[in-house]
Design a binder for these strands. Structure first.
Lengths: 240, 240
DNA sequence: GAGTGGTCTAGACCACCAA
DNA sequence: TGGTGGTCTAGACCACTCA
């Protein structure tokens, strides 16, 4: 009766490690203590720590490098720079050629976006609009909304400086690392404004990609809407 | 120099297990031998077998059930029936209401599809067209192409009998289990034929979902094209 | 209670990296 | 050469299922 819900030791270790990540004890890109050290700190065997880290590695929260150590995942690397990008050219390649900032302004959160970001309706937010170009042709119109409270350092100049690598910028400037995202895809017709920005006729079918990104502890931190022309590109997804 | 490429024991065990799955030694839905038995068979420790099975379980090729055993994954279960379905209603639910078969005919593979299915252009294939309805309204127009050589038993009557659960049918009738899929999404405008089938105006934006599904050993076995109305539904994807 | 997967440990040894 | 993660083993014990 009322069994106190069994929780494996390694899950508790995993929770402790996650807590340290949330607290910022180990910054993205830096090494966490060795398995032996952690085992000693928590008073468990190395194998138990290992299993906890295994799960964090499987979730891409942490990255193991044999012979070197275990590192907090970061978007500040060529290999992980486009981790969340699922848009590929018809030939399968994955290169963004250019990126043009349209605006970066303060605004108030709409009810819908506030709910998704877990903030109050009308809260101050930063709203960014940009154009992504692939072969010198505009392909994606992006609208990005960030809670101002957590992203005070975001300015047009800095976005330009980071050349549109938003997640790198969040990490470096705000110390906020995005762990995972949820995307909702639909097909829509381009409205007049979008059509003008992308230089196409109103009503042209576009892939609409709505994304919410989460940092440690499943805290939503960014909302995005991408309107994407799919003449030469597609969204690739692996199911298993 | 010329190191012979180190391969862990558990990877070799995993390969042996996969071979048994390909050969059909263990059918989908049935239990594979216990970890102890496998350890004895392969002459390794139980922990090594365990690690091999861990990877197969992570890939959804096999399913562990504590206290019962390890089972070959199947689409013949309520929990796994819609494993590859990423279409959700606006409220987040996931129920297909109905499914209407339009046609099921023999045809010859086009060059593009033949390449994806790894068969010769012009090979005999089965081509299925169907309509998926959600709230009594047609939402998805599906076109499915199967290599005839492997799917001789597929007929319109049987598709009806399985009520459109194609992967269940492939498993039961053909003994073919789909392990993973790749999907390519774009936005398109409805052509005249599609518009008629879905009862909407030509040019209406639709989500185009092209899917190739693979069985054991990464062998492509099914090609699909779904044209999906996204007024009340969306494609949900988790990135991490 | 017997059998299965799940956890945890302790220790040995291997592969990889940096200095 | 020493430290890190990676593999492998052997054995103990726990949680779950079913007869």
């Amino acid at each position: 009766m009322g069994s106190p819900v069994f929780q494996p030791l390694y899950q508790q270790i995993k929770a402790l490690l996650t807590k340290s990540l949330i607290s910022g004890e180990w910054a993205p890109g830096t090494a966490i203590p060795s398995e032996m050290e952690l085992a000693a700190r928590f008073g468990v065997s190395q194998g138990t720590v290992r299993k906890a880290i295994d799960e964090l590695a499987a979730e891409n929260i942490v990255m193991r490098r044999q012979g070197k150590g275990t590192f907090v995942a970061t978007h500040n690397e060529d290999t992980t720079k486009f981790r969340f990008l699922r848009i590929f050219a018809a030939d399968g390649s994955k290169k963004l050629l250019d990126n043009k900032l349209l605006s970066c302004e303060r605004a108030k959160a709409s009810a819908a976006i506030a709910k998704l970001l877990d903030i109050k309706t009308g809260s101050a937010v930063i709203e960014i609009r940009r154009l992504l170009l692939f072969s010198n042709k505009p392909q994606i119109l992006d609208r990005i909304v960030l809670p101002l409270a957590s992203f005070k350092g975001v300015t047009a100049e800095r976005i330009e400086a980071y050349n549109g690598s938003m997640y790198r910028m969040y990490e470096t400037l705000q110390g906020i690392h995005m762990v995972r995202s949820e995307e909702r895809l639909t097909a829509v017709g381009a409205d007049a404004e979008t059509a003008a920005a992308l230089k196409l006729k109103a009503g042209t079918p576009l892939l609409s990609i709505e994304r919410v990104s989460y940092t440690y502890g499943d805290k939503p931190m960014e909302w995005r809407l991408g309107l994407c022309l799919t003449d030469d590109h597609h969204y690739l997804n692996h199911l298993d």
